[in-house]
Design a protein around this nucleic acid. Structure first.
Length: 543
RNA sequence: GAGGGCGUAGCUCAAUCGGUAGAGCAGCGGACUUUUAAUCCGGAGGUUCAGGGUUCGAGUCCCUGCGCCCUCACCA
């Protein structure tokens, strides 16, 4: 292995070469530019909070008195002023560097504070600390210790006594005011995006804390978090194309899961009445501002519940999450601290009031002006609007799919995006795997939550009759084309589990990424996923 | 998968009808002990995404490829 630092001639850019030289200047002081263990460290926000106004004023006064006395009595040595100012040791990334000659001003950033001011004076700082400050580049990590004071302009500042290098930033940093703007670079080099654009770090801190609040809420309500297989021998629980991988030891193909559903239901059979999982699903499909091939889903099952009971649960959970988000985002414009209402782009979404409820049929009539059961009208209206009513072979497409196309294009869009809304009671024929309503077998006991025109999560009354489930599996399999039938199989073991007896249950899935877009006000799913999938770069390639 | 847009200095962005590729920041040399995107003086920095073509002349027009973004399609 060759150390690139000892071979700077290998196409090292000028700017990096300069930084390597500055790193050498630190090494020449006898210091390790890459630092070492430091105890008694404090984050920047905690340090700032420790500032003591009175101690600062007392010290200033004492110093003024001392200097006056020295002036009045030349030759007399006056003892140093008593200093009760809190002393702290902090570390951070250097965001700004203002070198005034014998006084260097820097602004540090860490995960708690976007800008924390440090002053390094040749008079008060250690000799090596001052030298380190002089050779510091933007983007370096440094540790600083000293008392907290306030400048003339009123800014809390660490007046450094020591400055130590922690890590050199050899890569030239983004523009110091605008930050890293290039969208592609922000995703590819998230580690630069995060420190350069402080908002990015905050969004991911919020995401983690909001999900933690949701976990606590579910735990309080008796739900147990579990982890079920991601590598599955058959990809079940949803209708989606899976990723296929291969296991060498058993020489079998495996599927990355598209949903945990069939395993979570096995746990209901096993006797856990309330289970949930927050984890990744993988779907081998397109990607856009609402889809990433791997995404995080909260899936939950409640024994002895139904779709109404899990709707109530979700409504409480989402409201609770919104409250947590509002608490974290307190002080932001259009954020109400107790959380009934949060901005999402131009919208202001109210999570406090009861979510709207509308049945599929009602919404269809509202959007289209006629009953979805009127098949002749459905076909004629579809044709009038240019929607296909025949497939490639010229056969009539089943009316229920035409109804749904009309529904998605003309009815869903009539929803108020600022009002979280449940669409309930989907046609049974559209939801073949859902339990039909006992009072009206034509509708499925299913509800879907929509916010800001995004589908957030389906809610179901689960099937627990093994014979009905088996029949529905078979029905689903019979209608598949060649491609689909390669990865859609009959899950014998799941049917076996249902034969053992699964309690009646409500189940739901909640798209965590989309919910986080809403609660952190981010326009695309990539902005709430730390490392969204990017096509690999083939640099240096010539045609 | 289809259509549209974009790709210029390390970063953020300009460049009129096809006519010598510019600025700010960063970086470099110098001055400066209360600065706030510090300021002042001086100098430096380019395979205009890659490859080909048209032209006296291409960042600009044409073709191909790569990547990103947007819209649509696919997609519980």
């Amino acid at each position: 292995m060759t150390d690139p630092s000892t071979h700077p001639e290998t196409s090292v850019h000028t700017l990096e070469a300069q930084r390597r030289a500055n790193r050498q200047a630190v090494a020449d002081l006898g210091l390790d530019p890459y630092g070492s263990r430091l105890d008694g460290m404090m984050d920047l926000a905690s340090a700032r909070a420790l500032f003591d106004e009175q101690a600062h004023l007392d010290f200033q006064q004492a110093e003024a008195d001392r200097k006056a006395l020295e002036k009045a009595s030349p030759g007399v040595t006056v003892p140093a002023s008593p200093d009760r100012r809190p002393r702290v040791r902090v570390a951070g990334r250097v965001m700004l560097h203002r070198d005034n000659g014998k006084l260097v001003w820097m602004n540090l950033r860490d995960h708690t504070d976007a800008s924390f001011q440090v002053a390094v004076s040749k008079r008060e700082c250690s000799e090596s600390g001052f030298a380190v400050a002089k050779s510091t580049d933007l983007g370096d990590l440094i540790a600083v210790s000293g008392p907290l004071m306030k400048t003339k302009a009123g800014e809390v500042t660490l007046w450094a006594e020591t400055v130590q290098p922690c890590a050199k930033c050899l890569a030239p940093p983004p523009e110091k005011h605008a930050g890293l703007q290039d969208i592609e670079l922000r995703y590819r080099q998230r580690y630069v995006d995060m420190w350069s654009n402080y908002e990015t770090t905050r969004v991911f801190q919020w995401r983690s804390q909001i999900v933690a609040a949701m976990r606590r809420r579910l735990s309080e309500q008796g739900f147990l978090e579990v982890e079920t297989p991601m590598l599955q021998t058959q990809a079940g629980g949803a209708a989606a194309r899976p990723f296929i991988t291969h296991m060498n030891a058993l020489d079998i193909d495996l599927y990355m899961r598209i949903a945990p559903e069939l395993y979570l239901k096995r746990l209901l059979v096993g006797g856990l009445p309330r289970v949930f999982e927050i984890n990744r699903n993988f779907r081998n499909e397109g990607l856009d501002k609402h889809h990433n091939p791997e995404f995080t889903m909260l899936e939950l099952y409640q024994a002895y519940g139904n779709y109404h009971s899990v709707m109530e649960l979700t409504e409480d959970l989402v409201r609770h999450a919104a409250r947590a988000a509002a608490e974290l985002r307190r002080g932001e414009e259009r954020v109400e601290p107790d959380g009934p209402s949060l901005p999402f782009g131009a919208l202001q979404i109210d999570y406090g009031r009861a979510f709207d409820r509308v049945t599929y049929r009602e919404l269809f009539i509202r959007g289209l002006g006629f009953d979805p059961g009127d098949t002749a009208r459905v076909v004629s209206e579809a044709e009038r609007r240019g929607i296909r009513t025949r497939n490639d072979r010229g056969d009539s497409i089943d009316a229920v799919f035409i109804v749904n196309k009309l529904f998605e294009d003309y009815a869903e869009r009539t929803l108020d995006p600022a009002r979280p809304t449940w669409i309930m009671d989907y046609p049974a024929s559209l939801s073949p795997l859902t339990r039909p309503s006992r009072s009206n077998p034509a509708v499925a006991e299913r509800a879907d939550l929509f916010i800001a025109h995004m589908e957030i999560g389906p809610h179901y009354t689960e099937l627990n009759n093994p014979d009905v489930q088996a029949a529905k599996f078979r029905e689903q399999l019979s209608g598949l084309d060649d491609e689909e039938s390669t990865f859609r199989t009959f899950d014998e073991d799941f049917i076996q589990a249902l034969k053992v007896g699964m309690p009646p249950a409500g189940g739901m899935g909640l798209g965590i990424d989309r919910l986080m877009m809403l609660l952190t006000n981010q326009p695309t799913i990539r902005d709430v996923i730390l490392f969204p999938l990017m096509r690999p770069q083939r640099d240096g390639e010539t045609a």
